[in-house]
Amino acid sequence: MNEIVAKVLKGDARSIARLITLAENNDPDVMSAMKDIHPHTGNAYVIGITGVMGSGKSTLIYELTREYRQQGLKVGIIAIDPTSPFSGGALLGDRVRMMELATDDGVFIRSMGTRGMLGGLTSAVYDVVEILDASGKDIVMVETVGIGQAEVDVIKIADTTLVVLVPGLGDSIQTIKAGVMEIADIFVVNKADRSGVEQTIAEIESYIDIANTDRDRKTPVLSTIAKESKGISELIYEIDKHREYLKKTKRFDAQRRKRYEAELVEIIRKRLMDFIFDEPKFTGKVESLIDQMSKKEVDPYTAADEILGKILK
């Protein structure tokens, strides 16, 4: 077996970190490593934390982690922030709220840039969840970028998805309901010491009454004040209840199967894109087709067919 994989399986932080870097960079070595990692996965419970900017997702993760650590569980955290589409750089600032966890060897935190992915995640996130899982983490938390309306990809990877809102969003709940409101397994109204919390909860409740399609379970709405550690054990209780519910109703395996499907699609997408857009024999063709499109000599669909035709034959 791969030397780095052997160390990851023992929980060695430096090897975990290095393998994550290889996965992020799409390194050719990562393929064989992931072959050895995959059989050791499936034990970690994955919690997705998503919500609007400034809703306190990182602080909430910090508090949840402290509670899980008291239960003796090991925790992996993936904190995703947006990559600048202009420079390709990223400012990853989620750690600021979690620094007290930095020296706890039962916690591994990794900050990642989206690197061009839309949907609130980053392409390598599936690999990173598997790596943390295989390294012996009991809980893996995935914090998405601060979201608006359509960043809903987190449900592809999470067993339980928390949607974090804050009081005073008012009408904006109406606007975000389209995508983001539909993905919550649990709603969290954080910063509940602010005014307007009752109204926000009522708005979410009324949304759930209309939209809830699952007859067996009503999506709970909790309020927390993460920076004062309030409401955290109640939240953990609801996460546990959701986990039991998934197991009892056989939804757990179905959901995990969907994760593998999403992972497979992502790997194929990534490799196909690299194949087309990094391959010298195609890049020239792509450029000239774009030129022809600009001059109205060819339409977009015919241009796409020209490229795809070369691969599919």
């Binding site: 750089g89 990223a90 400012l91 990853l92 620094m99 930095a102 020296t103």
Partner: peptide, 27 residues
Amino acid sequence: RDAGMEVVYTGLHQTAEMIVESAVQED
């Protein structure tokens, strides 16, 4: 960041242990 790098910002009041451990995890 504007030069295309990924910058992990850790904030104030860090000990050497926190800094080195974070550097390891963030590779």
